[in-house]
Amino acid sequence: MARAATTTDAFNAVAEPRRRQILDLLAQGERPVNDLVEMLGLAQPQVSKHLRVLREVDLVHVRDEGRQRLYRLNASPLRDIHDWLAKYQQMWAERYDAMDAVLADLKEEEDHGD
């Protein structure tokens, strides 16, 4: 089965760790590409390639200011990922609650066993 192109949706785009790093940096505020290059320690063409993918799935918006291109996060497409993960968040919360109950029982047994 062929893998979906990274430019088809936010799920595929954020599958790449460097793109997630870029999103994390842009979540802190708008930045020019040179700042991203410096912060990531990557070559400018690599960062630009990742930004292109993020723009194509609308996770990043760009605006020109003089000679600079400033990039900012558009978190709206992440909503689909959030909604999908919400189902699993509930499942994990229930599992952690069950584990907490088991640990509390074990602690109580240990305390009464002394």
Results as ranks from 00 to 15, higher is better:
residue 83 D to G: 02
residue 72 R to Y: 08
residue 102 V to E: 14
residue 73 L to G: 01
residue 98 A to H: 11
residue 83 D to P: 01
residue 89 Q to I: 14
residue 99 M to R: 14
residue 89 Q to A: 14
residue 87 K to W: 02
residue 79 R to N: 08
residue 97 D to M: 13
residue 84 W to R: 07
residue 74 N to C: 07
residue 92 W to E: 07
residue 69 R to T: 01
residue 102 V to K: 11
residue 90 Q to H: 06
residue 93 A to I: 13
residue 75 A to E: 14
residue 83 D to I: 01
residue 88 Y to S: 08
residue 80 D to M: 06
residue 75 A to P: 04
residue 84 W to S: 05
residue 90 Q to L: 14
residue 99 M to G: 02
residue 88 Y to A: 05
residue 88 Y to G: 06
residue 74 N to I: 02
residue 73 L to S: 03
residue 79 R to C: 05
residue 89 Q to Y: 09
residue 83 D to L: 14
residue 101 A to N: 12
residue 76 S to P: 02
residue 89 Q to E: 15
residue 93 A to C: 06
residue 90 Q to C: 01
residue 97 D to F: 12
residue 85 L to Q: 08
residue 92 W to F: 15
residue 91 M to K: 11
residue 84 W to Q: 05
residue 68 Q to H: 06
residue 88 Y to T: 09
residue 93 A to Q: 15
residue 70 L to P: 00
residue 71 Y to L: 02
residue 88 Y to P: 04
residue 85 L to G: 05
residue 78 L to G: 03
residue 83 D to Y: 02
residue 68 Q to T: 01
residue 75 A to M: 03
residue 72 R to I: 03
residue 84 W to F: 15
residue 74 N to A: 11
residue 91 M to A: 15
residue 71 Y to D: 02
residue 68 Q to S: 08
residue 96 Y to P: 01
residue 94 E to P: 00
residue 88 Y to Q: 08
residue 92 W to N: 06
residue 69 R to F: 06
residue 85 L to K: 04
residue 85 L to T: 11
residue 87 K to V: 06
residue 92 W to P: 00
residue 99 M to D: 09
residue 103 L to N: 11
residue 77 P to N: 04
residue 102 V to P: 03
residue 80 D to Q: 09
residue 103 L to M: 15
residue 78 L to F: 03
residue 79 R to A: 14
residue 103 L to V: 13
residue 102 V to Y: 10
residue 83 D to Q: 13
residue 70 L to M: 11
residue 85 L to S: 10
residue 79 R to S: 10
residue 76 S to W: 01
residue 82 H to F: 08
residue 77 P to G: 03
residue 94 E to T: 07
residue 69 R to D: 07
residue 89 Q to C: 05
residue 70 L to G: 00
residue 79 R to I: 05
residue 100 D to C: 06
residue 84 W to V: 00
residue 99 M to P: 02
residue 69 R to L: 08
residue 84 W to A: 10
residue 76 S to K: 10
residue 91 M to F: 12
residue 70 L to N: 04
residue 70 L to I: 11
residue 81 I to W: 08
residue 72 R to Q: 11
residue 74 N to H: 08
residue 73 L to H: 04
residue 90 Q to P: 00
residue 101 A to P: 00
residue 87 K to P: 00
residue 99 M to L: 15
residue 87 K to N: 10
residue 76 S to V: 11
residue 92 W to H: 09
residue 89 Q to K: 10
residue 82 H to D: 12
residue 97 D to Y: 12
residue 89 Q to F: 09
residue 86 A to V: 05
residue 81 I to L: 15
residue 89 Q to N: 06
residue 103 L to D: 13
residue 91 M to S: 08
residue 92 W to K: 07
residue 85 L to P: 01
residue 98 A to S: 14
residue 101 A to V: 05
residue 88 Y to I: 04
residue 101 A to S: 13
residue 75 A to K: 07
residue 80 D to S: 12
residue 87 K to E: 11
residue 79 R to V: 09
residue 75 A to D: 12
residue 95 R to Y: 07
residue 100 D to S: 09
residue 75 A to R: 07
residue 72 R to F: 10
residue 92 W to Q: 10
residue 77 P to E: 03
residue 75 A to Y: 02
residue 93 A to K: 09
residue 88 Y to V: 01
residue 102 V to T: 14
residue 103 L to C: 12
residue 70 L to F: 10
residue 79 R to T: 13
residue 97 D to H: 13
residue 69 R to S: 11
residue 85 L to H: 04
residue 81 I to N: 07
residue 83 D to M: 07
residue 73 L to D: 02
residue 102 V to H: 09
residue 93 A to F: 09
residue 99 M to V: 13
residue 86 A to W: 04
residue 102 V to C: 08
residue 74 N to W: 03
residue 80 D to P: 00
